[in-house]
Design a protein around this nucleic acid. Structure first.
Lengths: 165, 165
DNA sequence: AGTTAATAATCAGTGTACCCCGTTTTAATA
DNA sequence: TATTAAAACGGGGTACACTGATTATTAACT
């Protein structure tokens, strides 16, 4: 009875559904990130794209999508917004004219680097309620789950180059 | 060196950021849910709203928002879509004419009840890569984090009535 | 060479999630 | 009672996430 209590057609509480908790966690993280990074007016997804470009400059949009774990269609939108703000530029590839090569501008690079502090503040604020051991456990479990289910998403992400787990 | 390896201005990998893992987990869950529930053409959020109405009929939109952990404005959108499909109806409250009282139609109730199986299938598929112990640990940690950070979201959720944790 | 495959990107459309601002209605207060 | 505050809702706007279809370019194959 302590488990679910699904007696006679009762419906499980939302709080017992992993999907609900994941969605709420996502909402909460985005809210905290936007609050901590309000000075930059950059969203988590935009920050992910900028980080991907910082780690791998001169990327085409599909490479960015894989690195940042974002849908291909959406990458174009995000890049267009960043380009409009002068944080990114795009050009046609010389070797393959289908591809558009993106790069951070000087301003974009500066902001991406600056934002690391605010980003870490957001992380701390989010994880603060958990003890350090629990934080590590949660990160491990989420990583395990994301890696194992990676192909189910429309935007399968590229695995980290040197994962030691 | 096993931790981060942030040597000389390097940027943390996305895979070490909780926000990234949460976002990926959310993407994956939605994808799996939509796949398992394709026969119903109902999204996770729509299902959450329908569940909220199943557990608490005759709710106004703000109550639904709190129960389902969804933004107030979004609830109106979701309800409008469900209403258009004949799964929900809305009427003005007699006692407080500001409120719109929502309810599942017979068809909506049937679908909400039917969907529980598909929903559970999606849950199983999502959590399958983890051992039962790890699943429970993950659920506990996510619940703890969501409860502790509840007020940070724009859509603070109502806590479960009889949470035994 | 010419046809076909596959690839990179774009466009149109739906749905989620949130913001700000304003309107209507109710409740609280002077 | 009159004014004010608060609550519920709607409209307009931005951004993310994905689907399906289409176009341009490249690669692969007969």
């Amino acid at each position: 009875m302590t488990k679910t209590g699904d007696h006679a057609g009762s419906i499980t509480s939302l709080w017992e559904r992993p999907g609900y908790l994941i969605r709420r966690l996502h909402q909460i993280h985005v809210a905290i990130f936007l609050e901590e990074c309000a000075a930059y007016n950059i969203t988590p997804v935009q920050y992910a794209v900028m980080t991907a470009l910082l780690n791998r400059p001169d990327s085409d949009q599909i490479t960015i999508a894989q690195d940042a774990g974002i849908d291909r269609t959406n990458v174009a939108d995000v890049l267009a917004r960043l380009e409009q703000r002068g944080l990114v530029n795009r050009r046609r590839s010389g070797t393959d004219r289908r591809m558009r090569i993106a790069n951070l501008t000087a301003e974009g690079t500066r902001i991406a680097r600056d934002m690391e502090h605010a980003s870490l503040r957001a992380q701390s604020k989010l994880m603060k309620p958990l003890s350090p051991e629990k934080r590590e456990t949660l990160m491990k479990l989420m990583t395990e789950l994301v890696e194992a289910n990676n192909e189910f998403s429309r935007a399968p992400a590229r695995m980290p180059p040197e994962a030691d787990l």
